[in-house]
Amino acid sequence: MSKREVQASVKDERLVQKRRDQMIKGAVALFKQKGFHRTTTREIANAAGFSIGTLYEYIRTKEDVLYLVCDSIYDHVSDRLQKDLELKQGTIESLKKGIANFFYVMDEMQEEILVMYQEVKSLSKDALPYVLKKELEMTGMFESLLEKCVENGELNLSEKQIKIIAHDIFVQGQMWSFRRWALRKLYTLDEYIELQTDLLLSGIKQLHSSEAALRKGGEG
C-alpha cells in the first residue's frame, strides 16, 4: 500500500515538513486535552504558531492532521529499527538492538501514541486501513529480525512462533507507553528493556527445552 497523499499548496518540501511537524506537536497536546472532535483547526493553527490560512496551505482537513500524527509515529519507528542493524543482521545482538530502539521510540513518542490509539477511530475509511497496515509492517520488521536469526542458526523457531513473538515485542513496547505512569515507579526505561528482553529470550529457550523433552518422550 503506497503512502497516503496529504495535499499541500506549498511546493517547498522542507518547509512543508517543518510546518507539519509544528502542526503535529500542537495537535497532539490539543487532542490529548480535548479530543479530536472538540479541537478546531483554528486551535491547531494557534498551537502551531501560525494563522488558520497558513494551516490550510499544508493540509485540507482536520483529519489530515490526525493522519500525519499517526504516520509520523510509524516513520520514526521504521527509521529507528533500521538504525545500526545493517552490519549485525541475523544475530541475537541485532534482535536486542531492535527491541531497545523500538522501546526508546515508544518512550519518546508516548504522547503521540496515546493520542493515536485514542483517536484513530476518527480516521476516514481510506486512511484507517493504511494506518493499520503500517502497524502490521512494524510488527513485520521484528518478524524479519527473528527470521534472520533463525537463518543464521541463532534461534530455532517455527513461522507461527516467529509471528507471535513479533507481536509480543510490539505489545511490550506499547505497554511502556500506556503504563509508563506505573512502570516508571518500578523501573528505568533501560531496566524495563533489559527485563523484557531477558524474559523474551528466556521464554524462547524454555520453549526449545520443552519441545526437546516432548520429542525425547515421543521417541521413548
Rank of each mutant, 00 (worst) to 15 (best):
M1P: 02
L95Q: 05
L128A: 12
S210T: 03
Q172T: 00
R179V: 04
D75R: 07
C149S: 15
T139I: 13
G53T: 11
E159T: 15
Q174Y: 04
Q196F: 02
N101H: 12
D190E: 07
K62M: 12
Y67T: 00
K25N: 09
I59W: 00
S78V: 00
L66H: 03
E219N: 06
L15I: 07
Q196M: 08
L200W: 05
R4L: 10
E143S: 15
R19M: 09
T91C: 10
L128K: 13
S9T: 15
T39G: 04
F178K: 04
T188H: 06
Y187G: 06
R180E: 10
L201P: 05
W176P: 04
L30H: 11
A182R: 10
P129T: 12
I164G: 13
M109G: 09
Q172V: 00
R20E: 02
A48M: 00
E151D: 03
A213T: 10
A182G: 10
E143N: 14
S78W: 00
E119V: 05
F170S: 01
F36H: 06
Y67R: 06
P129C: 12
I44D: 02
V10R: 15
N152T: 07
R42S: 15
Q7H: 02
L87E: 10
I162L: 11
Y187D: 05
N152P: 01
V171W: 01
L199R: 11
G217N: 15
V28Q: 05
D84M: 12
A100V: 10
S9A: 15
